[in-house]
């Protein structure tokens, strides 16, 4: 299912955060949203999921207008992976993942055997089966992230929205989660994620949208969008992009470094 936003204006109440936003992501594709803190990424995400009303323009999910869909209908189309989830009560990992089935169950029903089976299958798929009975509050940051991804998958939504999925992860978990996201796209999901790391966007996204001051200032393939000048401009810090010497075929890998390092 395709997620499209056309001429979208975003904001809270009377505060306008951004406007004129065009983004689209198709099945099998990872779109990375890059931009400094406060540029409006989170507001855009909230608007794409219908958590905030669009102040102008519209969002379409597989051709349907977002505004016409109920919360449950949206949840069956978009799975959301928050940056982190506050564990107020120590639900187990399995119970947490089961909450992804809510949009598929009636208001008065409790999860069925089949819902449990779906939840367990996704935990298994993400290598989290052994943690099913552990409290969500007691597992590591990487495991929590995988649990939240499993929960979004349990929604059986074809679009996944991930808010800085690697923000609080250590180096190993960061790479593992990014690798997992790549595979989810290969399985046919349309993935939109935000990140602060241009090199991650470069390596793991098919397309990059750069957000600055509430607008998308550049959009396209990583090679075309990511330049030293652009990054220096939006982050207000002098950086350059340097190719990594490699004999492997395919597009060249770049890294972002402070200007003058090389």
């Amino acid at each position: 299912m395709r997620l499209e936003a056309a001429d979208l204006a975003i904001g809270y109440g009377r505060t306008r955060v951004g406007s004129g936003i065009h983004v689209a992501v198709a099945p099998g594709e990872v779109l990375a949203l890059l931009g400094p803190n406060g540029c409006g990424k989170t507001t855009l995400f909230r608007t794409l999921m219908g958590l905030l009303p669009a102040q102008g323009g519209e969002v379409r999910l597989g051709g349907e207008r977002l505004g016409t869909l109920s919360r449950a209908a949206i949840a069956r189309r978009i799975g959301y992976v928050p940056q982190h989830a506050e564990g107020y009560f120590p639900f187990t990992v399995l119970e947490t993942v089961l909450m992804g089935r809510t949009a598929h169950t009636g208001i008065f029903s409790t999860p069925s055997r089949q819902d449990y089976a779906v939840a367990r299958a996704h935990l298994e798929r993400l290598g989290m089966a052994d943690y099913a009975e552990q409290p969500f509050t007691r597992i590591s940051g990487g495991q929590r992230q995988l649990t939240l991804i499993a929960r979004a998958l349990t929604q059986e939504a074809s679009i996944l929205v991930m808010d800085e999925p690697t923000a609080s992860l250590d180096f190993g978990n960061e790479l593992r989660v990014l690798d997992r996201i790549r595979r989810l796209a290969a399985d046919g999901h349309a993935v939109v994620l935000s990140t602060h790391n241009p090199d991650h966007a470069d390596r793991y996204a098919d397309r990059i949208a750069v957000m600055h001051d509430g607008g998308i200032i550049a959009q396209g393939s990583p090679g075309a969008v990511l330049t030293g000048e652009l990054l220096s401009g939006i982050y207000d810090v002098a950086v350059e992009r340097a190719p990594v010497a490699t004999s492997a075929p395919g597009p060249r890998v770049h890294v972002t470094l402070p200007r003058g390092t090389l």
Partner: peptide, 20 residues
């Protein structure tokens, strides 16, 4: 009672999971 679990999550999370 199953949905009371979801009300105990963050507001946004619960809504994104399909709860009004």
């Amino acid at each position: 009672r199953w949905r009371i679990n979801l009300l105990s999550l963050d507001e946004e999370e619960a809504r994104a999971l399909g709860v009004n």
